[in-house]
């Protein structure tokens, strides 16, 4: 970790609840008054039992879930932007350049080859075809996806292979901030290690990471600090 690490993300008094309009508009509170910050090269582990809102917090930061109260400040393009108040256009820009997210499930257009799927984020950024494809091959190799699968769409792959393709699609770019939702959940020990290496590599280059890792081994290998949502709730 760098010595003079600068802050890249600051969550302040964030609240999230769901209102179920078709079930008598009941309100399901998830968390309230959540505050923490994240520096370059830090890997913050979200801790707490299932159902405490770890994934909800990650999704809220990514803008996948809508929040109305509090702040999610992201250092983007050399200035701070509060995603709670940002327009969809700005959020898309933040997602394209600054904020990467690895969800638990792979969701892609059918019929596209794995290699093209992984290269696409770079092509979208305006990188050349050769460079993008080479980078994609490199990352697929690191994640031990057999070369015989590269030309196939991932729909028929095993759960673990799909998960690694999902990781490749995000890690092919070098995002300053990464949100990881159980990236190693369905992987065996060897493949887990490949993902751990990728995460450590990104972290040591200065990427700021927030992650949910149920596996203690993974958590200890990559984490630099812990944020317990349950404790934060009681403290609030």
């Amino acid at each position: 970790m760098k010595n003079t690490a600068i802050e890249v993300l600051a969550v302040k008094n964030l609240k999230k609840s769901f209102i179920l309009h078709n079930q008598n508009s009941i309100e399901l509170p998830v968390f309230d008054n959540i505050s923490f910050s994240l520096k370059e090269g830090e890997c913050l582990v979200l801790a707490g039992p299932s159902g405490t809102g770890k994934s909800t917090l990650l999704r809220s930061i990514y803008g996948n879930y809508l929040t109305h109260f509090g702040e999610i400040n992201i250092y983007h393009n050399q200035s701070w932007i509060n995603l709670v108040e940002a327009t969809p256009h700005s959020i898309l820009n933040v997602r394209r350049q600054t904020l990467g997210y690895v969800s638990q499930f792979l969701r892609v257009i059918p019929r596209i080859s794995t290699l093209d799927l992984v290269a696409e984020p770079l092509l979208e950024q305006g990188e050349t075809e050769v460079h993008s494809i080479n980078r994609a091959k490199d990352i697929l190799q690191k994640l031990a996806i057999p070369e015989t699968l590269w030309d196939l769409p991932p729909a028929t792959f095993s759960g673990g292979e799909q998960q690694r393709v999902n990781i490749a699609i995000t890690f092919v770019k070098e995002f300053p901030i990464l949100l990881l939702d159980e990236p190693t959940a369905s992987l065996d020990q060897k493949n887990k290690q490949a993902v751990i290496d990728l995460i450590i590599n990104a972290r040591d280059k200065g990427t700021a990471i927030i992650g949910i890792f149920h596996d203690e081994y993974v958590r200890n290998a990559v984490g630099t600090s812990i944020f317990d949502i349950e404790e934060a709730k009681h403290a609030a």
């Binding site: 309009h21 078709n22 999704r59 803008g63 809508l66």
Partner: peptide, 21 residues
């Protein structure tokens, strides 16, 4: 209206919630 994944994953309006579910 909003980001596609947000509207589909966390719909706010009663009608959208019904549609998505």
């Amino acid at each position: 209206q909003g980001l596609t994944d947000q509207v589909l994953d966390d719909p706010q309006d009663p009608y959208t919630q019904l549609l998505v579910s």
